[in-house]
Design a protein around this nucleic acid. Structure first.
Length: 649
DNA sequence: CTATGGGTTGCCTAC
DNA sequence: TGTAGGCAACCCATA
């Protein structure tokens, strides 16, 4: 019998140490062994990936490639610029492959992709070996032990996990890797569908990564940002297994930190160094094994002489949350990443709701601009120009460095959704998806649902203040001064509410608090975009109302638009509730028309119609007639006074 | 069935 | 400077 000819398919497991799937591949004792990465157009064009995360991925790929070459100088990571679904059938044949091995991935798209690849392999007579390794416990098993239901609380994970068994100890990196076989390719490269390209806004020129299947030099090398058309990374956080293990070593060496870590007591305002581990991007790309992290920490905890912290606040507790979100996603699939058709996500009539294709039941990637004012708030939030320094500093840190502290994420997420703007959590999740180095679909969607009180968490009356919360950690405002340098000279008395600084103080500090942040101006910081206390009250009322109505994303009333009957106009959000009698008539239509009907857009197309550039900055346009028109049309949407009065009755 | 306590990470005021 | 209780009130697991 011929010896195995094996492709090991790297995906979110960019490491050599503690990779159960890689070990399984090597255990086949292959005659020829190709470590492969497929440059999937779905990731390149259809996922939101900012330049910093591209760099991190490339770092990880280069590092794993180097590590392979170190063990066998004839081998490396063979990066092929084509979708796996079309590449593999050709590759199986050309290289006479007998086995395909990879780590299990429960992301919704990954499942579809892998199902297709497994079918292709079966047809080609190639044996597929899949090993779980991305989470503490296999997510499907976790769901099974949770009575077949998505894991929606940490106590469920703590009950279900141990029923599967103990968390395995990490296995060492392989000491040898067999030679690859031939690497000639005598087939054509399938050209990808490049549109829509969700990353076109970041590219400075067109993507060149599909010009040749083996790369510009024909050596299967890892792409460069230049090849992808992106500018240079702006983050100092770097990827790769080597770096990840060094970081872990450093953390573990500090026994007290490791054993007594309590997440809620770490300061979100700390920078250089940050208060948490910064290992999350490595867990995402797999440059660090989750079991490696778990056991290195657990061993310190077990040997600690003092009082160690416990899950869920401890370091290992953080990993449980990750498994919880993975379990929820494994069970709910695509719907976990959106509100509509999500059986476990509460329906709240947020502003800027996602557009949904009712045939596929999936969000389209676009959204309805039901309120120009909300859109303006959203843009100001995204680019760190809200006029609230704590929020702006965090958003600027996120954009330039790709990472913010977990509690900082709480602050900006609460502010955008239930505690300020009343904008859909899905808008915020998209921004995080683009900018976070550690973006993990399951964790991102889960945490946004948590913070917006649509799932996992329900105490919506606990609301983060953009002034009081950072005061708890950083009275001097050092964090704000670092990321909003125009406020550097301001007295600490005003650092979180600069609009209160008298004009003399502003002059002394060399900053003027004026304008709406639409355009950046040297020495100018915008006024706050709303009165936070007022907005907090309005949002709280809206949440109370929506909780009372009690709809979830898969409710027929949510899908067909009749949810409006259950809301009145006192509820914040584009409800136009029971005063909008004709809305139902429009909703009888199918598909996109349903959502269009929901707009109640009859005579105001100019004000509410979004266009291709809708998500981009609109300059002064919003502020002009449109904003006024929107306000008027919504009758209370932007009229804070009316809402405040109503909320006080 | 109801009652009760807990839930990784709120804010404010009083002592 | 730290802590307790009120605030208004959510869901869920358990008894």
């Amino acid at each position: 019998m011929a010896k195995p000819r094996v492709i090991y398919w790297f995906r979110t497991d960019l490491r050599l140490r503690d990779s159960p799937a890689l070990q399984a591949a090597l255990d086949l004792n292959p005659e020829a062994f190709w470590p492969v990465w497929t440059w999937d157009p779905h990731y390149v064009y259809r996922a939101r990936v900012g330049v910093n995360r591209w760099q991190f991925l490339i770092d990880c790929q280069n590092d794993v490639s180097k590590s392979i070459t170190k063990i066998n100088k004839r081998s490396k990571l063979f990066l092929m610029r084509e979708a796996p679904q079309t590449l593999f059938p050709k590759l199986f044949k050309a290289w006479k492959i007998t086995h395909l091995v990879f780590e299990k991935d429960t992301d919704a798209y990954a499942r579809d992709r892998d199902t297709e690849v497994m079918k292709i392999a079966r047809e080609a007579g190639v044996e597929v070996i899949v090993r779980s390794g991305r989470t503490l416990w296999d997510s499907d098993q976790l769901v099974e032990k949770n009575h077949g239901k998505p894991t929606m609380s940490i106590s469920q994970v703590q009950a279900a996990g141990p029923k599967i068994g103990n968390i395995p100890r990490p296995i060492p990196a392989p000491k040898s890797i067999p030679d690859p076989g031939e690497t000639n390719l005598d087939f054509e490269q399938e050209q990808p569908e490049t549109a829509p390209d969700l990353n076109s806004g970041t590219r400075k020129h067109g993507d060149k990564s599909y010009e040749k299947i083996s790369g510009p030099n024909g050596d299967f090398s890892v792409p460069t940002l230049e090849e992808l058309g992106f500018p240079a990374s702006t983050s100092l956080h770097r990827g790769g297994e080597k770096i990840a293990l060094e970081m872990l070593d450093k953390i573990i060496a500090d026994e007290k930190y490791t054993a007594t870590f309590e997440k809620p007591n770490t300061a979100p305002t700390d920078f250089e160094p940050q208060a948490t581990t910064l290992l999350s991007p490595h867990l995402h790309f797999g440059s660090l094994s989750i079991r490696e992290f778990y056991w290195r920490v657990q061993d310190v905890v077990d040997n600690y002489s003092g009082k160690a912290s416990q899950p869920p606040v401890s370091l290992t507790g953080q990993l449980l949350f990750r498994d919880m979100y993975f379990g929820a996603q494994a069970s709910l699939g695509y719907s976990f990443g959106q509100t509509l058709y999500n059986s476990h996500c509460r329906f709240i009539p947020w502003h800027l709701p996602s557009k949904v294709d009712h045939e596929t039941k999936l969000v389209t990637g676009e959204y309805h601009i039901d309120s120009p004012l909300a859109e303006q708030w959203f843009q100001r939030w995204k680019y760190g120009r809200t006029g609230f320094p704590w929020i702006d500093a965090l958003m600027r840190q996120l954009r330039t460095e790709g990472w913010i502290h977990h509690l900082g994420r709480h602050a900006v997420a609460c502010f955008l959704t239930r505690g300020g703007c009343y904008i859909s959590w899905e808008r915020g999740a998209e921004v995080f998806e683009e900018w976070l180095l550690d973006h993990e679909t399951a964790c991102n969607a889960g945490n946004w649902q948590w913070l917006s009180c649509t799932a996992f968490y329900a105490q919506f009356y606990r609301c983060y203040s953009p002034v009081a919360f950072p005061q708890k950690w950083d009275k001097e405002g050092l964090f704000v001064r670092r990321y909003c340098p125009e406020l550097k000279g301001l007295d600490k008395k005003y650092i979180y509410e600069p609009w209160k600084a008298p004009i003399q103080d502003q002059k002394k500090a060399g900053v003027r608090i004026q304008g709406d942040g639409e355009e950046e101006q040297e020495g100018v910081y915008p006024k706050p975009m709303f009165d936070f206390a007022e907005r907090r009250t309005i949002c709280l009322d809206g949440m109370k109302k929506a909780y009372g109505v009690g709809l979830y994303g898969d409710d027929p009333k949510v899908i067909d638009g009749t949810w409006r009957k259950l809301f009145d106009d006192a509820a914040e959000g584009p409800t136009e509730g029971n005063t909008f009698e004709d809305a139902m008539a429009h909703d009888a239509d199918e598909g996109e028309k349903v959502r269009d009907g929901l707009e109640g857009g009859d005579d105001n197309d100019g004000a509410i119609q979004e266009d291709e550039t809708g998500a981009k900055e609109k300059g002064g346009e919003i502020k002009g007639g449109d904003a006024k028109k929107g306000k008027k049309r919504k009758g209370g949407q932007g009229t804070l006074d009316a809402h405040v009065k109503k909320s006080k009755k």
